[in-house]
């Protein structure tokens, strides 16, 4: 399937889902779906740099929070419309991604991963000390009273935006994966020196990959402050974003766009279920245990099983 067909299809499905959701009376559905889809975007975005290019980013929370706090800033400064907020947050997080991409120039493997972790803490400290966006106390954002496009509640609008963002993230990930670019990124992941010696402009590709990955993570965060009507640094920078966005592609499979999608839906839904039935503290334990189990016992994730099964069938 060509990428254009795929993109049209994925957006058609997204719009169909939005339309169908109007008939769902249950408010909880929107909450749960919003959270799961947010994880789909984060996992898909992480996988572009982590899975395709082979650079482990522990700083998902930093990008997410940059998206979220750019919304807070625009809210305080201009009461900007939602679309502007989404685009601006995506852009700012993309620029941060570009900066992180330059780190790959000097830092390979582990050092890069630790640097991204450090980046998250540095940004966290800045936000805590930045009173204009609420500092450590956090900030309140009122959802606009007028809800466009005939949605019943503003939350439904945010949910619909998240559905569209998910579609965009999946389309971008698949386009990268199936293109020449994706082949180049895979070469970088396997052996950077060999890639460069095969004519792959490794730095440019890494910058691109880090920028797109960061931008998509930031995009997922832009609607977050409105969604809760309240934001504080420790929730926006929560390390659970980092662990989830790593666990989901690892569990689903990192070689294709389907992996993070499957992993995020599976792990995200389990967490929603546990949150309702047990308590949210158990969520992270489950993510941690599943991450460790999969990474030790099924290193290629669910898609790895599927591939192995397909191969056996072919024989």
């Amino acid at each position: 399937m060509s990428n254009r067909t795929f993109t049209v299809m994925v957006f058609a499905i997204a719009i169909a889902i939005i339309m169908a959701s109007r008939f769902i009376p249950n408010e909880y559905f929107f909450q749960a779906a919003y959270t799961v889809l947010q994880f789909v975007v984060l996992a898909t975005a992480w996988n572009i740099l982590g899975g395709y290019t082979g650079y482990v980013n522990f700083g998902t929370a930093a990008f997410f929070a940059v998206g979220a706090y750019s919304t807070v800033f625009l809210y305080n400064a201009f009461q900007a419309p939602l679309v502007v907020m989404i685009l601006a947050g995506t852009l700012v997080a993309g620029l941060l991604g570009l900066g992180v991409g330059y780190l790959t120039l000097r830092l390979r493997g582990v050092y890069f991963a630790i640097a991204t972790l450090a980046l998250a803490v540095v940004l966290y400290t800045f936000v805590i000390n930045w009173d204009y966006v609420g500092g450590a106390r956090g900030a309140y954002l009122l959802q606009p009273r007028e809800v466009p496009f005939g949605f019943a509640r503003y939350t439904h609008l945010l949910y619909s935006a998240m559905v569209l963002m998910t579609a965009a993230a999946l389309a971008v990930a698949r386009a990268i994966e199936t293109s020449t670019l994706g082949r180049g990124l895979a070469a970088i992941r396997d052996d950077e020196l060999a890639a460069e010696s095969a004519g792959v402009p490794t730095l440019r590709l890494k910058l691109f990959s880090a920028t797109v990955s960061g931008a998509l993570m930031g995009m997922a965060g832009t609607t977050f402050p409105y969604y809760l009507s309240y934001i504080e640094p420790s929730s926006a920078f929560s390390l659970s974003y980092a662990v989830n966005s790593i666990a989901m592609p690892l569990i689903g499979g990192m070689m294709s766009w389907l992996g993070p999608l499957i992993g995020a839906i599976l792990l995200g839904s389990i967490q929603q279920l546990v949150q309702v039935t047990v308590s949210s503290a158990w969520n992270l334990l489950i993510v941690g245990v599943m991450l460790v189990l999969f990474v030790t016992l099924a290193p290629n994730g669910i898609m790895g099983w599927v591939d192995a099964w397909r191969k056996r069938k072919d024989r």
Partner: peptide, 10 residues
């Protein structure tokens, strides 16, 4: 890396 990250969380 992911393994130790998971251990940290657990």
């Amino acid at each position: 890396l992911a393994f130790f990250f998971g251990i940290l969380f657990i």
